[in-house]
Design a protein around this nucleic acid. Sequence first.
DNA 1: CAGAGTTCTGCGGGTTCCCGCAGGTCCTTT
DNA 2: AAAGGACCTGCGGGAACCCGCAGAACTCTG
Lengths: 248, 248
Amino acid sequence: MMDMEVLIVEDDPLHRSYLREQVSAALPECGTIHEAENGLQGETLARTHRSMHIVMDLQMNARNGIEAARTIWRERPDTCILFWSSYADEAYVRGVSRIVPNGAAYGYVLKSTSEERLKLALRSIFIENQCVIDNEVRGMQQRSFAQASGFSDSEYEILMDIALGLTDRAIADRRNLSLRSVQNRLQQIYSKLDVHQTNPSAREPSAREDAVFNLRARAVTVAMLRKLLNYGALEKAEAELRHWLRKQ
Amino acid sequence: MMDMEVLIVEDDPLHRSYLREQVSAALPECGTIHEAENGLQGETLARTHRSMHIVMDLQMNARNGIEAARTIWRERPDTCILFWSSYADEAYVRGVSRIVPNGAAYGYVLKSTSEERLKLALRSIFIENQCVIDNEVRGMQQRSFAQASGFSDSEYEILMDIALGLTDRAIADRRNLSLRSVQNRLQQIYSKLDVHQTNPSAREPSAREDAVFNLRARAVTVAMLRKLLNYGALEKAEAELRHWLRKQ
DNA sequence: CAGAGTTCTGCGGGTTCCCGCAGGTCCTTT
DNA sequence: AAAGGACCTGCGGGAACCCGCAGAACTCTG
């Protein structure tokens, strides 16, 4: 146990040094601490050092934490990874829980938590091999899987597709559905996002019926404002889309 | 000059204490340093202390830096504000230069710059009343105002409108244009964003013409990926939209 | 197996979008 | 004054969208 090593992947220098400090304080049995300043470098260092204990930021420039974690877990699924993020966006939570391997120990704590809880999380994950999810993140998971405005995975896929700007036809081709099925999915998405909201004025069915919103575009924005989508998710989806377009 | 006071507005505790350190090191003539941890609190403290020297983060939870700066400058247009941000998104740069009053001294430096340059910027702005814009930010400004994929203000407005999910009709009403004019603007936007890109396969005009993209939705995503839009800009535009909807 | 629930699919319409064509109003340039 | 450019506007058509209706196919339960 004396040769435990930890890899820190974090692009902000201040946060990185803070993490190093906290790690060495919380884990006296820790020998060397390696540092990477983006996801790409994180993958490389994890590979060369065969890191089993990683604490990593989401939202980095070169390659975000979810992408990096996926390739790392693909090579060694029993790696312990603690995600340390500023935000609990549903897009992040969903992205993480989508890639975590069966039985792997991982954690998700916010940067705003206290030092004590960070240290506790470090020990729980790296020593006890036990998952630690921050309360607020946990709450997000609940709301996500419950159907209170919760999206199934397939609905989420289609939401990404319209965010990318695909046509109904293109979505149907990509997801192997009929055109009408795609439109049905869109209907559910629109209702779950409550996109039909207009001004709460008199709802008289007068001639002045206001079709203020283009539902397709509106859905994307509402999803962004609700943190269902964010920049990282868009970037990732865009890469996958390009990959798919080549094979057409 | 001995009673100079500085107000720091920054939500991250680590960055905040780092800023305090740098400010007191760079400005020995500085007496008190106040701190706020979000834009709303920043506005309040700026008002009560009549702060003339502010260094402030963009992208905060309660109210982002641009909003806060606008209300502060509205009350006292000769306030010196140094924006200290992680990113040089065109949305931020454009948002800042849209609200800076005539003749006001302000600065925009990235968090990734060296301590020396940060200190230099602090002295230049607060002592010499001189604008300091980081090189990378400056480059963004150039690209933005040159028409190399640069958007005029009116085009930018319409881009925001379709991002919000408005219909052509609604945009026309809102911006006092005819329906056709809005559609013309959209045409320009589509071409400037180069949204017509399909797979670079054989461009034969065969029957299998691929209309893969819904231009309207695609434009929004491309704008986001190019940092022309970001979450803060969306949030702000959404608030303005709600305000407009009431008056309808 | 019957029946109820959920999802997939086609049809058809009304509406909105995308955009070429053409005429109009304001400029600036020579 | 004439010629050119930049912008706004109406017309019209083909395509894509939004969505109600209604029949298949699949599941789940008793």
